[in-house]
Amino acid sequence: MPADATTTRPLAAPSPAPRAPALPLRWLGVLPFFIFVALFLILPTMHIVLGAFRTTAGDFTVQNILDLNTRSIRNAYWVSIQVSFWSALLGCLIGFAMAAAVVLGGLPRVLRQPLLTFSGVASNFAGVPLAFAFIATIGPAGLITLWLRSDLGIVLQAGLWNVPDGLQALLGEQVRFPRFNILSTAGLVLTYLFFQIPLMILIITPALDGLKREWREAAQVLGASGWQYWRMVALPILFPSILGCLALLFANAFGAVATAIALTGPALNIAPILLYAQIRGDVLGNPHLGYALALGMIVITAVANTIYIVLRARSERWLK
């Protein structure tokens, strides 16, 4: 059918009265979508971005951005980046290992579908209830915390192991190790992994499925060992997907508010919680500093994604 067919047919659904005859009528079909995203995605975001460069009176300024450079805000961003980075990196590694185990590791095929279904559930089991689950497990009165203390003499919060009698000859009476607290960076990473790992599994499984058996066999028959096949063929092919997952997981953790708030209350100083507190009660004393704080968050996730896009473009010359 010729492309101009729409202009010769009466349009029934989208709009009875086209007002801009200069624009081809087919644009009407996507107009609702663009109006929607303009009103509820683009404009609000732009408002924040532009607001970060304005004074209360409406004049242009970069003072808001400069004002971000305080000890507490710097610290909040830094903790946020650390939590997001580590939960993304560990999520990628563990998720990759689990997906590879099921897809390529020779595990029974019946495990595959349950794992994917469970990943769908767990990756969406985020927010407030996830925090509850972890508090009940390794919080101060959690199941594992109590079990470790009563049965093994390990006190997580204190970083102390009261070694039982049988092992004292070997280890001494007490062993010290880094303290663990669910309300800390490590605790947050541990909790975030609960939705990061399954997300990785969900995204990387199709990519692993895309590795053709013939590639492995062709490499083998040309003399390559399993490790050489992974280093020279499989990992380069998977690299863009893995990078994409890393960027997505990073953004996913960076914007997570609910889990952190339910886990620690407003006490933990990370960027999204600081912004949350600012929106609720202007704790920074300058509404436009809130804009700058939000802008910083956008910039950081945008940088993560730009790095991903650049690296991907470099590693994917061989793709159509």
């Binding site: 053709k212 013939e214 590639w215 066999e217 062709a218 490499a219 083998q220 028959v221 040309l222 003399g223 390559a224 060992s225 020279m232 063929v233 380069p236 092919i237 061989w318 793709l319």
Partner: peptide
Amino acid sequence: LRPNQRNVGMVFQAYALFPNLTVAQNVGFG
């Protein structure tokens, strides 16, 4: 012997070229 010790050449039905390598790199792989 394992496949990578047999020194045989094999051509598969299709799509067995390594997509991330150029033609020259593919031919030079072995």
